[in-house]
């Protein structure tokens, strides 16, 4: 059986891992604006975000 070139590449790639080093995006609202990455928060904002507690749960009520 003959494989075309791209297939070999795909098979090789299948063995490899994708997404290494890619962080989850965590969108938060702080001081009124949304920010897509906590990395750009200044230290005070990071601390504030970390301390937040929830005021109610919206899990489906039974």
């Amino acid at each position: 059986m003959i494989y075309c070139k791209t297939d070999v590449a795909v098979q090789a790639a299948n063995a490899a891992l994708v997404g290494e080093g890619v962080r989850f995006e965590r969108i938060r609202r702080i001081t009124g604006y949304l920010v897509g990455t906590l990395d750009r928060f200044n230290n005070a904002k990071r601390a504030e975000e970390r301390d937040r507690v929830k005021h109610c749960s919206l899990e489906k009520w039974d």
Partner: peptide, 14 residues
């Protein structure tokens, strides 16, 4: 602001 837990999409009424 009100902070809510859980997925609000599953409970739009609340």
């Amino acid at each position: 602001y009100v902070e809510v837990d859980g997925d609000p999409c599953s409970n739009l009424e609340a």
